[in-house]
Amino acid sequence: MITLSQRLKRKNDSDSGIVNRAPIRDRLLVKEAQEMSQLLPASCSVQYHNENDLSKFTLVVQPTEGYWEGGSFKFDINVTEEYNMVPPLVKCATKLWHPNISENGEVCLSLLRRHSVDGMGWSPIRRLNDVVWGLHALFTDLLNFEDPLNVEAADQFRYSKEDFKSKVTEYVLSYARE
């Protein structure tokens, strides 16, 4: 017969072998979540999925200028147990037309790259605040579309700003209304 005490004992035995980083993440998150909310860009807001869990939240970006103005774009952010040795996992939950975000929601942001080739990827000195500002910048800085995720959108941006603008607006009206 399996009793609770046996189960707990076995659980403790198996836990001792692997290094569990969750308490480190949770301690870091207490400070970082506070810092993030204090320094949040004006066009952004944060919604926690569960008030007792700081590791899963949605960032909503509502640009007030630029191509994506008027849209409401949601990013699901998951801070995994290995944080801050690895970046948070970020997925865009709103379909949009953007050179650096695929239509499936994958986000191309150097900061979120786990393995950095050029020294621009994740580093443990980064904080949630940097991630938020990085995502926010995807809607303001139209500078680096050298390595796009949505090649069609990047080409369109390069060759026909008008077509790009109307396609962005079409997507905003269809998928990103508040």
Binding site: M85, V86, R114, H115, S116, G119, G121, S123, P124, I125
Partner: peptide, 17 residues
């Protein structure tokens, strides 16, 4: 402790690369 975890992934100084 912190550094030995990080160098496993990336053998660069997190501050100056």
């Amino acid at each position: 402790c912190c550094m030995s975890l990080w160098v496993k992934q990336n053998n660069r100084c997190p501050l100056c690369q």
